[in-house]
């Protein structure tokens, strides 16, 4: 065990100050120090994409980044999207098109797609397919995920929402 370090991380707009070991993975920090369980961990070697969060607005793997590296940075997790009572258009689209089954990979996919749609608000199916290629899903065969993202892009361009 090495010395604890004080860090200050903005998560979903709230600043959190914590003392952590340098080796603590950012995924564990989000889950166990901040208490936001929506960020799931599937492989801890950066392959599956389940733990994807936005780091200063960019999708990144939280399982292969250390919490201390987030000091002074801003993190967004799935909890920053909608709530069960009021989901955002991306989440609504996933419900309408059955884009989630077990839901374990879903938060990583939603965060990846949030950034993707911001960069490319009117993607083709092929672009969406490439866009989620870095996220493994074992339940859906991806088809309904792609349809969900397509529907979300339509919903968002109508409502002007991000």
């Amino acid at each position: 065990m090495s010395d604890l370090m004080d860090i200050k991380v903005t998560v979903n707009g709230t600043v959190y100050q914590r003392s952590v070991e340098p080796r603590m993975l950012l995924s564990d920090f989000i889950r166990f120090e901040i208490g936001l369980g929506g960020t799931h961990v599937g492989c801890e070697h950066g392959v599956c994409g389940t733990c994807t969060i936005l780091f200063d607005g960019q999708p990144q793997r939280s399982c292969i980044t250390f919490a201390v590296q987030a000091d002074g940075h801003s993190i967004e997790t799935v909890e920053s999207l909608g709530t069960p009572e009021k989901m955002n258009p991306l989440q609504e689209a996933f419900q309408e098109k059955h884009g989630a089954q077990c839901g374990f990979c879903t938060p990583g996919i939603l965060m990846t797609m949030k950034a993707f749609l911001k960069e490319n608000p009117h993607p083709t199916e092929e672009e969406i397919r490439e866009g989620i290629d870095g996220n493994l899903c074992r339940c859906t065969g991806y088809q309904n995920i792609i349809e969900s993202v397509k529907l979300a892009s339509e919903k968002m361009s109508h409502s002007g929402s991000k």
Binding site: M1, S2, P22, R23, E44, H45, V68, Q69
Partner: peptide
């Protein structure tokens, strides 16, 4: 799958 301890420098 957790890393071993290390000293950390962030220059």
């Amino acid at each position: 799958m957790k890393p071993a301890s290390f000293a950390y420098f962030s220059p």
